[in-house]
Design a protein around this nucleic acid. Structure first.
Lengths: 129, 129
DNA sequence: CAAACTGTATTAAGTATCATAGTACAGTAA
DNA sequence: TTACTGTACTATGATACTTAATACAGTTTG
């Protein structure tokens, strides 16, 4: 289900958060679908359950999932996870990256195409990666 | 010259790298212009010289500046810092962020406008921030 | 009820990173 | 020489990451 890079400078739980976010945003994991349990996923990835839980807690804080004691963790419908603070933050990040892209010589047209492609793959449901 | 957030979860040297990158990419710091020396900047920001040097080393690794023993550190002309690995990496980051932006409900038109605005402020030399 | 799942919390230990401090060496320019 | 530059190294304290071992609380199934 995942590939984690142990020798990366990025913490394992962060890599896990990124991967799961991607699966949720690409609707590979559907709204209200149950995620693998903390212990199950830990066993599959050969990682400590605490690390998994840390990732799940982070995903919950970011609004991507919700957890219920005794039941499990589930994908939060996207409408629930939209808040203005986050939108502002993402726009700020985008601003930085676009500046860097332009500085590196990537053209405006290329960037626009990147946006359009991503939108198409989202609507079409095709695999964007 | 800078504002650093000590209570941030981000390391000081990383914040410094980000700020300096921005100044370089916005051409506030011109090509071949000399940066403040390690010790000077450390004194101004009230942080340890080692931390400054770590930031400069990182900027040098990323191709944004070059340093000469006994002389100082200088802004690398942008042509020198374009390498394909980096372009690929930035595109990958952009891909992730665009997906997240669309997921949060930001429209394609908004994103395209963001790109155009950034390009305009770059060409016009106006302050984009 | 009991067993087997769920999420959650806590403590401990080892490792790594971050930041500071102090010192030192090498190259450049007045 | 003097006073700048970048660079390197050791040491120390604080914090973050990861693993480990338990433990508790809630849900579901038999």
């Amino acid at each position: 289900m995942f590939e984690l890079d142990t020798r990366s400078r990025k913490p394992i739980y962060e890599q896990l958060v990124e991967k799961l976010k991607e699966l949720i945003m690409n609707e590979v994991l559907k709204p209200d679908e149950q995620l693998p349990s903390v212990r199950m996923l830990a066993q599959q990835l050969t990682i400590n359950p605490n690390t998994i839980q840390k990732a799940y807690r982070e995903l919950e804080n970011q609004g991507f999932i919700y957890s219920q004691k005794g039941k499990g963790s589930f994908v939060n419908p996207s409408e629930e996870s939209k808040d203005s603070e986050k939108i502002t933050a993402v726009k700020g990040e985008l601003d930085k990256l676009i500046l860097e892209a332009l500085y590196l010589g990537i053209t405006v047209e290329e960037l626009i195409q990147l946006v359009k492609d991503k939108d198409a793959s989202k609507r079409g449901g095709a695999k964007g990666d």
